[in-house]
Design a protein around this nucleic acid. Structure first.
Lengths: 124, 124
DNA sequence: ACGCGCGGTTACTTCAACGTCACCACAAAG
DNA sequence: CTTTGTGGTGACGTTGAAGTAACCGCGCGT
C-alpha cells in the first residue's frame, strides 16, 4: 500500500470505516444510544421505518466494528450501548442530523428549482 | 405531520437529506470540491474505485439537492463546485473522514476480536 | 482529415440492501 | 399451562444501487 492512507484510496481500511459511519442507520442508532443504553424494541420504535432485520444487521455490524456493545443489565434485560469508540462518533454524526434538519427548506427549494428547470428543458 | 420533525420520523424530508449526506461518495466529493472546483475526470481519478456512472449519478443528485453547481469556466471547461449550502457540509463530512482515518487500528482490532469470538463459538 | 482524450449517456447485468413472513426461545401475565 | 410480548434468526423475494461496456459529440493535436 502506498503512503497516502486515506479514504480516497479504494483499498484503504478507512474506506470501510467511512462506509460504515457515513450511513443513515448508523447515524440514527449512534445518536439514540448516546443518550442511554436501549433495548432492541426501544430502538426499533424510535428509528421509524427500520425493519427488525435491518436493525439487527446494523447492530451486528456496529458490534463487529467495535462501536456498540450488547450487555445484560441488572434488571435481566440486554441493552445496546456505545463503546468508548462509539462515543467518539456521536459528535460528528450528530452534526449530520443537525445539518439535515436545519437545511430542509433550502434543499426543498433547490429540488423545486432543479425539477422545474428539467421540466422546462424536456417540455420545451 | 407531527411536531417533532426529525430524521427519526420516516416521512420527514430531513430523512432524505440525511440519507444523501450520510453517504461515502457524497462525503468524498464534497471534501474534494471544498479545496477547489474540479472537472469530471479529476474527480473520477481522485475518488478511487468510483465508476463514471455512479459519479454522474451522485453529482446529479447533489446538484438537485442544491449542494453542487456545474459551471463553465473562463477556460471553456465545465467544473463542479460547491454552492453556499454545499460549503456548510464540508466541516461535518470532513469530520467523518478524519474519524475513519484515525480509528483504523481500533476498528481492525475490534473486528479481529469479534471474528475470533464467533469462531470460538461455532468451532466449539 | 484523422485519431484521441474528455465528459458524459445508455442499455444491460449483477449484487448488496432491504422487505416480508414465518418461526423460535424465553419470560411474564392471566 | 395457555396466551401475549419481546428479541431476535433465517429463508426467500424484490428493489435499488452499483458495475460493465459500448457508444457519442466535442474539442484538440498532428
Amino acid at each position: 500500500m502506498r503512503d497516502e492512507w486515506t479514504v480516497f484510496s479504494a483499498k484503504c481500511p478507512s474506506r470501510h470505516s467511512l462506509a460504515r459511519i457515513a450511513n443513515k442507520w448508523t447515524a440514527m442508532i449512534v445518536i439514540l444510544l448516546h443518550a442511554r443504553p436501549l433495548r432492541f424494541g426501544e430502538l426499533h420504535r424510535q428509528v421509524e421505518g427500520i425493519t427488525k432485520k435491518v436493525l439487527t444487521d446494523t447492530l451486528r455490524a456496529l458490534e463487529r466494528d467495535g462501536m456498540v456493545l450488547h450487555l445484560t443489565h441488572a434488571d435481566g434485560h440486554a441493552r445496546y450501548e456505545l463503546t468508548e469508540l462509539g462515543r467518539t462518533l456521536h459528535e460528528p454524526l450528530r452534526a449530520l442530523q443537525v445539518w439535515a434538519e436545519s437545511h430542509v427548506e433550502e434543499v426543498r427549494e433547490a429540488q423545486d428549482r432543479y425539477d422545474t428547470a428539467v421540466d422546462d428543458r424536456t417540455l420545451g
